[in-house]
Design a protein around this nucleic acid. Structure first.
Lengths: 192, 192
DNA sequence: TCCATACTTGGACAGTTGTAAAATTACAAA
DNA sequence: TTTGTAATTTTACAACTGTCCAAGTATGGA
């Protein structure tokens, strides 16, 4: 992201960024992402174009900011220096609940954008990265050859895959079932 | 893709499409994807812009065609009505060899594009889809709750993940080791 | 209060995108 | 060879993108 949202920012800057994010969220709810132009976002947020480019490189950069705002609520506990399968499933529950809060937004997004669109991929990718960052280096692995980074990547992908299936694939799955799905996928679901 | 490459096409059409694909491959080898414009591709392929839009919706559509040309060589055997883990690993070997043939191209792509760029994601996504299409409906699953489609998705993602690690992540891994990695990921690598 | 500095804004610009229509070319049947 | 149809290319266009600069506006410190 162009602006580091972690560093403290003046009230004005935050207000402006929030206005653009709101414009994006509202636009996403009503039309496909590739029909959303920077011009339209500026009109909606009621800021001039130059201000947009002050804060964001392009509309993807704004998207990053939007996902960041959603992901802020995720507070993955990484006290555990060795994360095992049950820890993963615990954290999964937290993200499930977060996604559930936003399920109307996701519904709208999916109604306007194909599941394999740039937009959805961008979203998926962002959250996979969030998970990955929180579990890499801390996984408690079996005695295997595969490198830890690869396994961490695999776990985060799997977690997001289940959530994608549920919240972007229009499958109504309870948290309990979702946890079971995840557990199965992480345990080797295919016959030997 | 705008043009269905499966349906038979006149020699002229194929020549034109190949020219654009070649222009794309050559450009990819020397600069980042987002610096490649349709204009430049046309200049390189020596065709007018309107011809480009005759065959492709945009540069992503051309990319689809490029990956399609590579993927053509994959001939996944789906005689088996129930694919188990060893079948998956067999097919994996075939794709590993295919990717290995193109490893110089992939090297160049990675030198010019970040691993999490739109371009790489597009590539990954395309091949995940190819694998998914070939294994869905035929997986021999354990007695589990997770739906078959989700598991198929998970398997194809895992396969491509290992290949990404090797060929796009600059990790030199032999076929034998790669098969072992895949087997471990599909067997549940994390401690319970 | 004043000033210096940083940030915001408006306008302009070159380059790009995707589309639509008109003009040309290729090709196959008579 | 002629002719009609379809495929291909040309040209023109309106809109968008990202960057730059200069004028305007806040803001905080002295």
């Amino acid at each position: 992201m162009k602006y580091d949202p972690n560093k403290k920012q003046s009230r004005g800057i935050e207000r402006t960024q929030r206005a653009f994010a709101a414009a994006m969220f509202n636009s996403l709810a009503e039309k496909p992402f590739d029909k959303i132009t920077v011009n339209a976002l500026c009109k909606r947020a009621d800021y001039p174009r130059a201000t947009f480019y002050n804060y964001f490189d392009d509309k993807f950069d704004l998207l990053d900011f939007c996902w960041y705002k959603i992901a802020q609520d995720i507070n993955i506990e990484i006290p555990n220096p060795n994360i095992d399968k049950s820890t993963i499933i615990q954290n999964f529950a937290q993200i499930y609940k977060l996604f559930d809060q936003y399920h109307i937004l996701f519904q709208n997004i999916i109604d306007n954008n194909p599941i394999d669109s740039q937009l959805v991929n961008h979203f998926i990718h962002y959250f996979t990265e969030v998970i990955y960052e929180s579990i890499k280096c801390n996984l408690n692995l079996k005695a295997i050859k595969a490198p830890a980074e690869l396994v961490a990547q695999h776990c985060s992908t799997t977690i997001i895959e289940v959530l994608k299936w549920i919240f972007l694939g229009k499958h109504d799955v309870s948290l309990e079932d979702a946890e079971e799905y995840l557990n199965e996928l992480l345990s080797g679901p295919v016959q030997v």
